[in-house]
Design a protein around this nucleic acid. Structure first.
Lengths: 239, 239
DNA sequence: GGATGTGAAGTAGTTCACAGCC
DNA sequence: GGCTGTGAACTACTTCACATCC
């Protein structure tokens, strides 16, 4: 049901990172059977300005109705298409410690286009167990074909796991290990460091700057879209 | 040992998000007993250009030596000071499912200034157990005084937990629940959505754009901002 | 009337290029 | 010679302001 009003402009990186946020909000509204939403409402919920919402969505095509906002179902469809949810993408998760399990069990992670096709771990006690309907294989078994590997092993094991992924033809790695990975050209590594999020929050706490200081702010993970225009600093309660 | 060469300029959001990355690399070099590093090496390891590294570090003061790069120990000290690691910050973690446990057990999360002072969970089977040396308390017990709360509960419980944090005087929340939180002015919410990282990777896979398509890329986040941006953050080591 | 979509302006961040110092 | 630190140029993103359309 690709609408003719669809446009496939190149989207900016910050926009791409916000689309999943809009998507989640839109899905929530669909569950509540609301049918329309406007840019001000969406922006409020996503922690960005209404203008930013409109610009982001305009990049996907002419989705709204002037004077009446956006149809929630249309938004859902178009955001999903933009993010490639209509195409499925096979994912393996390597390392089933707490973080790996958290991701596999999360209702938000391996969904929307991503499909779990394999689990791997080094621990003999974990290998052979079933998690989320998948038998955990030994990490030294050949890796199944997949588009993306999610690496949740300890830093010390991360490089060898990455090497094995590359050998197996997996050229997109989502790396949760706090370890720099060396990979050949043509392989993409996307590093995720959860501790950074806390560090950034601490920086602002100690300096009384940034997202704190004034308002209800939902700074975005990644990249962190500076939310609604930074309000003038107000002395903060944290200190 | 605050050097006189220290400057305390206001740092940009992307810079702040990159400092923890530099810090981790510098710590690795210290463990290997290397004493000097230059901006090209640091940039290579962090996935940013040498110029960006120099600009980021120049924001902290005049730390380098022309012609000879940076002293690893100086860098470690100054980055730590900039991030406020010399001041300690009390943190509670609420919700000890897999994600909460992963964070508490991580050698990278609750370190460098952040100090764990309390654990809370709703599950009677978990309450009373000891994790990382801390007894897990019931989530309906009064919250201990802290500066930051890390929320790792299911989305459905997130809002009520946030309310309790605010009541308890905790005004900085790191929210891992995929749920928009309403909080009063003066409270900062920093949302972290792990699924976004995968979504962004999928977008680039399907579109052949961005960090893929050509090279060894360590996109930054945060965003990434913007890092990420990441452009803002689209890449950081486990970010 | 009311909210979208967008040119224009403004702001923030990165990269270039080189002066300055070791 | 080599590498830092930084003005200047450039690029990217956001915000303003308003024409446009329902």
């Amino acid at each position: 049901m690709t609408s003719s009003r669809l446009r496939r402009r190149k989207l900016s990186e910050p926009t791409i990172a916000r689309l999943p946020v809009y998507e989640r909000i839109v899905e929530e509204w669909m569950r509540e059977n609301r049918t329309r939403i406007d840019s001000a409402q969406l922006g409020e919920l996503a922690g960005v300005t209404a203008t930013t919402v409109r610009r982001d969505l305009a990049g996907l095509g002419t989705l709204g109705t002037r004077g009446a906002g956006y149809d929630v179902a249309v938004l859902h469809t178009c955001i999903g298409e933009a993010l490639g949810h209509d195409q499925r993408c096979d994912v393996v998760v390597i390392g089933l410690g707490n973080l790996g399990r958290a991701l596999v069990n999360s209702s938000n992670f391996l969904t929307r286009g991503a499909r779990l096709v394999g689990l791997y771990d080094a621990d003999p006690l974990v290998v052979g167990t079933v998690i989320d309907g998948h038998v955990v294989r030994a990490v030294d078994e050949p890796l199944i074909a997949a588009s993306v590997a999610v690496i949740c092993v300890p830093a010390s094991a991360a490089q060898s796991v990455a090497d094995r992924c590359v050998e197996a033809g997996i050229h997109a790695l989502l790396n949760f290990a706090p370890q720099v990975l060396a990979v050949p050209l043509g392989t993409a590594v996307h590093d995720v460091d959860l501790s950074i999020e806390l560090q950034v929050l601490l920086y602002h706490l100690h300096n009384g700057t940034g997202p704190l200081g004034g308002g209800l702010l939902h700074a975005l993970a990644r990249g962190d879209a500076p939310g609604p225009r930074m309000p003038p600093m107000v002395e903060g309660p944290w200190h």
